[in-house]
Design a protein around this nucleic acid. Sequence first.
DNA 1: TAGATTGTTAATCGATTAACAATC
DNA 2: TAGATTGTTAATCGATTAACAATC
Lengths: 217, 217
Amino acid sequence: MDKEKENRVSITVIRRLPKYYRYLGELLKKGINRVSSQELSELTGFTASQIRQDLNNFGGFGQQGYGYNVEGLYYQLGKILGLDRTYNTVIVGAGNLGQAIANYKGFEDAGFKVLSLFDKNPKLIGLKIRDIEIRDVDELEDFIKENNVEIGIITTPKENAQEIADIYMKSGIKGIWNFAPADLKVDDDVVIENVHLNESLFTLSYFLKNKSDYVKN
Amino acid sequence: MDKEKENRVSITVIRRLPKYYRYLGELLKKGINRVSSQELSELTGFTASQIRQDLNNFGGFGQQGYGYNVEGLYYQLGKILGLDRTYNTVIVGAGNLGQAIANYKGFEDAGFKVLSLFDKNPKLIGLKIRDIEIRDVDELEDFIKENNVEIGIITTPKENAQEIADIYMKSGIKGIWNFAPADLKVDDDVVIENVHLNESLFTLSYFLKNKSDYVKN
DNA sequence: TAGATTGTTAATCGATTAACAATC
DNA sequence: TAGATTGTTAATCGATTAACAATC
């Protein structure tokens, strides 16, 4: 009955994977082809034990007495994270933040292609951000359906975020990357990843104020 | 000896505070002046028990039989987060992302004032983002020292992030908000808050791929 | 007073760390 | 073979949830 529960990996583990992936990518670029959990620990700051535990949620990628093959592990983690393919995305909200994301080459390199930006501001509609056209948000639903868009990005003010999420859902999008400082209500089969910059900044503020209690942490 | 340890509140608690703060602000704006942990639970998604535990790390803000006074709790949380004052900040990296942050009125409203942007691109130097001038990064250290800047924001490519962090430290900055996809090495008395957008996107990718295992979570 | 809801202790649950046999 | 390091189990630690007496 709760078969799914068995191989359900905890969210805290998942959130560490991209960091492993990043450092493995760096090692790979340096031409290093072998790494131990101890070495990964020094790079990432997680304990070697935790790293071995984390990786073993997905399989035995290492080899006793040797460690992990950098290229192999990098490839495996990419596959686990779903980075072994490409995704079509759109961005609603063509202000600075939307443009920043559209401009960031790193996302495209990782397989996330921004097909179009959308806005309701007539001054922006028709402009291009390195070949990516800004369209009227009225065209959003049709565009998504016609272009096999899987990920919807929201960089609008918070007042408009929920209505955009609703259009996304109506259009069949199952993954939303939300930058508006609001918690969106979505259907059970839609996943949301929030980037709440204000919360991040307030956390920094707290730690800045209380840093003496947290030195070396 | 480990006196500090006593009143050390766990990081996971701290990271929930901004969300409480946000919802309290919304309630306040609606003119609601009383809220129970149960109601906060429905808003935030955390359990009522957890909310009471979290708040009691900092004091007994509630009243039996009544709940919490919205305005009072909002004010207290603001104080705890260090939002009862203003901070001077600078941004290094005047591309789209840096401009987005400089443009975002919400940060200024919360007390974080961007005094200047910095870049090394001569085409950007001298431009203004709503009154905020873009200066040459060569002037960074002097500017920080002369203007009582406490928070340094990094929105450069990852290749330059560490050198900017080094200048920040040399200039006396103790709080860094880092958007570059790199883990910066800083002194023990400097706090860093990272916003690693690529890690966030990769996490979304994972959950999109495995969403059937995570429905209603 | 009766009802509601906190503050707080105790119980549970889950995540991290330690340890070591397996094995390359 | 000897040394190194994984995979995995057991122990520990910390965070969440449950429960309820205190009290407004």
